[in-house]
């Protein structure tokens, strides 16, 4: 029986029992190296100054946005057509603003890339430069475990940060507006937080890719930030340029107008921040019934003015979530391939 147990353990762990461990009477049950690495990475992140600074910025943003939301709610802007409408009042904590400060969602979509970049930009190249990479890889660990551990630890940290912030906002909202969330609202918020984690994970992977590719931490940080700014500022401008160039001349031709609009929507959805914002808004504003800009008059007129159910909202943003995960996977695959092909030499 015990023989089988050992065989099984050896098969899953790939670890032949250690002679010395047996003689000392210690069983071979120990944490797999992968989780040892994850633990260490996680600990390193939490202890670092970088993380403290990031946390400070994000917390400030959170508090600011809550303040803005609450003042807006007090002024009664929760629902434009009917001030007495208290449906989804709780969700407007995340989307309302008094105009002075951006709302929570905007803050999050703005800062999320920064978190991802800050956590990932020096994860591989700094180890290489410090000479710890070759030392770690000469231990009996799989080469890809190193990269996977970096990713998992980063994502875990991001999830912890995002969720604690989200719950912080919810808790403070409960305190100040005194209006508890329905289970549906809670579900929507949790899904949005999950989506945010995926979104930050995408940026984490991108910066991981840069950290594998570039030997200098500064270069990789800069390229990450450049890409962030590109999507934040320039991508919209470029889209406008393209839009100006391909606008159909004949506005009465319905099919060409639809085609044009589809193209533009596709282009804008390449940007991960656009994907994230669209999806998060759909979830947090249940009144969003469709993401298609073309609604016929009959459709608009005949549609019952009612919010979508949770499931339907989720269905609406499902492609967005899949697209974000796909972009993340592509980045990770790229860094994986690059890393596995690289030479492991000390400090070169």
């Amino acid at each position: 029986m015990s023989v089988w147990a050992d065989k099984w353990r050896a098969a899953i762990g790939g670890n032949p029992r250690r002679k010395e461990a047996d003689s000392a009477g210690v069983t071979g049950r120990s944490t797999p190296p992968f989780w040892v690495m994850v633990q260490k990475e996680f600990g390193d992140h939490i202890r670092s100054w970088r993380f403290v600074i990031l946390l400070a910025i994000i917390t400030l943003a959170c508090v600011g946005s809550i303040y803005a939301a609450i003042t807006a709610l007090k002024a009664g802007v929760s629902s434009t057509d009917d001030p007495t409408d208290t449906r989804f009042l709780f969700l407007s904590m995340f989307t309302a603003s008094d105009g002075n400060l951006p709302n929570f969602l905007t803050f999050l979509s703005f800062l999320a890339p920064l978190i991802g970049i800050a956590i990932g930009f020096d994860s591989v190249n700094s180890e290489r430069n410090k000479g710890t990479l070759s030392r770690v890889l000469s231990q009996p660990v799989h080469r890809d475990d190193f990269l996977n551990a970096k990713f998992v630890a980063g994502l875990l940290l991001i999830a912890v940060v995002i969720f604690s912030l989200g719950f912080l906002v919810m808790g403070m909202g409960l305190f100040t507006i005194g209006y508890p969330p329905t289970p549906e609202e809670f579900g929507r918020v949790v899904v949005v937080l999950l989506m945010t984690t995926v979104y930050v994970g995408l940026w984490l992977n991108l910066s991981l890719l840069f950290s594998v590719r570039f030997k200098q931490a500064a270069t990789s940080a800069l390229s990450g930030i450049a890409l962030w700014i590109f999507f934040l500022v320039f991508y919209g401008m470029i889209l406008n340029l393209i839009a100006g160039a391909i606008t159909p001349s004949d506005t009465s031709d319905a099919s060409s107008v639809i085609q044009y609009s589809n193209t533009m929507q596709f282009l804008s959805r390449i940007s991960p921040s656009e994907l994230f914002q669209e999806a998060a808004q759909t979830l947090l504003l249940p009144d969003t019934r469709t993401l298609n800009p073309f609604v016929t008059q009959e459709q608009a007129y005949l549609a019952i003015s009612a919010p979508l159910s949770f499931g339907q909202s989720l269905l609406l943003v499902w492609p967005h979530i899949v697209a974000m995960i796909a972009e993340t996977a592509v980045c990770f695959a790229a860094s994986y391939v690059l890393f596995m092909r690289q030479e492991v030499r000390s400090r070169s």
Partner: peptide
């Protein structure tokens, strides 16, 4: 290092 080598 000892953790990476699965030493208890």
């Amino acid at each position: 290092t000892s953790g990476l080598n699965r030493i208890p």
